Deep mutational scan, measured.
Amino acid sequence: KTVKFDGLQFDFDNPEKALKFALEVAKQKGAEVHIHGDEIKIE
């Protein structure tokens, strides 16, 4: 899975870790997590 935000991109082999990371970043930024297939966007 790939996590994208602020023009940055982070690749994870483990989908659970990717989602956990995305949710943590979103919480800190006050943003929402959007999942599109293998891509997780924080907006």
Rank of each mutant, 00 (worst) to 15 (best):
E32I: 13
K1L: 13
K20A: 12
L23I: 12
K1D: 01
G30M: 07
Q28K: 10
E39Q: 08
V33T: 00
N14E: 09
E39M: 11
F21H: 14
A22N: 00
F12L: 04
E24A: 08
G37K: 09
D6T: 00
Q28C: 15
K1T: 14
V33F: 02
E43T: 11
V3L: 00
I40N: 01
G30L: 07
K20N: 09
E39F: 10
V3Y: 00
K1A: 13
E24T: 01
T2G: 04
A18Y: 05
I35G: 02
A31R: 09
L8F: 10
H36C: 15
V3F: 00
A26G: 01
I35V: 09
L19H: 01
E39K: 04
F5W: 07
N14K: 01
D38H: 10
E39R: 03
H34F: 11
H34A: 07
T2I: 11
I35Y: 07
G30W: 07
F5T: 02
A18M: 02
G30Q: 08
K4V: 12
I42Q: 02
Q28S: 10
A26N: 00
F21Y: 09
D11N: 10
E32K: 13
F21Q: 14
Q9E: 10
I35Q: 05
H34S: 09
Q9K: 09
I42M: 05
D11Y: 15
D38T: 11
N14Q: 05
H36M: 13
H34W: 10
G30Y: 05
V25A: 05
E24Y: 01
Q9I: 13
K27Y: 09
A18D: 12
E16G: 03
K17P: 03
D13L: 07
E39H: 08
I40Y: 06
K41Q: 11
F21D: 15
N14A: 06
H36G: 06
K20C: 15
N14P: 00
A18P: 00
K17W: 12
A31K: 09
K41E: 10
F21P: 15
A31E: 05
V25W: 04
K17C: 15
D13C: 14
L19F: 05
G7V: 04
K41Y: 15
E32M: 13
A22M: 04
F10C: 14
K27Q: 11
K20Q: 13
E39W: 09
H36L: 11
A26P: 00
K41F: 15
K29E: 08
K17G: 11
D38M: 11
G37S: 07
E32W: 13
K27I: 11
V25Y: 06
D38I: 11
K20I: 10
D13T: 06
G37R: 07
E32H: 14
A31Y: 13
D38S: 11
E43A: 09
F12R: 00
K29W: 13
L23S: 11
L19Q: 01
G30P: 02
E39C: 15
V33Y: 01
H34T: 10
K20F: 05
K17T: 13
P15Q: 09
G7N: 07
G7K: 04
G30K: 06
A31C: 15
G37V: 08
K4A: 07
D38Y: 08
V3R: 02
I42W: 03
V3W: 00
P15V: 12
E16K: 07
G37Y: 07
E43R: 09
D38P: 05
V3N: 01
A31G: 11
E24W: 06
L19P: 15
T2S: 09
G7Y: 05
P15C: 15
K29T: 13
I35W: 11
V25Q: 05
K1H: 11
Q9H: 08
A18T: 03
